[in-house]
């Protein structure tokens, strides 16, 4: 993917990668996340990138540059992260700190309090409803931003570089 010059193939590989990560989320018990990743990550992202390629040119010209610098930065950062990760809870631990605080209430009481068997739904729409409201605000703002940047509804001026 790093070496491919044909951007169409790169975008297709990215779609496959998103779909595979959706499968990984199913294996990790996150079925709702998998749905969203398959629909939004693999679907909408790929369509957006294909639309970008259709409006621009689909081939990359320049060669990879700053390769040594990039490799050095990635190696050093990766080693730091690996040295930090051994302090994290073991994968799949039943008593990890992340499961200790509000999660028992969600799992034990949410059916009585909200009445929806899917805990992810009741947390998303009820306990953390304000998060979801904020999310909708972000999407609205991003949509406005895209429309403003692309200047929807009017023809682009002939000499566009002057006002950019």
């Amino acid at each position: 993917m790093v070496r491919l010059r044909n951007l169409f193939a790169v975008v297709m590989l990215f779609g496959i990668y998103s779909l595979l990560s959706a499968a990984l989320f199913v294996a990790l018990d996150a079925v709702d996340v998998a749905f969203t990743e398959a629909a939004v990550g693999a679907g909408i992202s790929t369509i957006l990138m294909l639309a970008t390629l259709a409006l621009t040119n689909a081939r990359e010209r320049s060669v990879t540059r700053r390769r040594a610098l990039a490799l050095a930065i990635c190696t050093v950062t990766g080693l730091v992260l690996v040295s930090a990760m051994v302090d994290l809870p073991v994968f799949g631990a039943l008593e990890a700190p992340a499961h200790a605080h509000v999660v028992p209430r969600y799992l034990l009481d949410s059916y009585r309090e909200i009445g929806v068997p899917n805990v992810v739904t009741s947390v998303l729409a009820s306990y953390r409803g304000y998060d979801t409201l904020g999310e909708v605000t972000v999407i609205f703002t991003a949509g406005l931003g895209v429309l403003c940047v692309l200047g929807a509804g009017r023809e682009p001026p002939a000499d566009d570089r002057e006002d950019g």
């Binding site: 996150a30 957006l48 999660v103 947390v123 972000v138």
Partner: peptide
């Protein structure tokens, strides 16, 4: 059951991520 709280956070993050991707691609265009 697995912990539902990270699932909720990441659901939100995926959707926000697509919104930022859309904005980035608009800037690219």
């Amino acid at each position: 059951y697995s912990n539902p709280l990270p699932h909720v956070l990441i659901l939100t993050a995926i959707v926000v991520g697509v919104a930022t991707t859309a904005l980035a691609l608009a800037l690219v265009i």
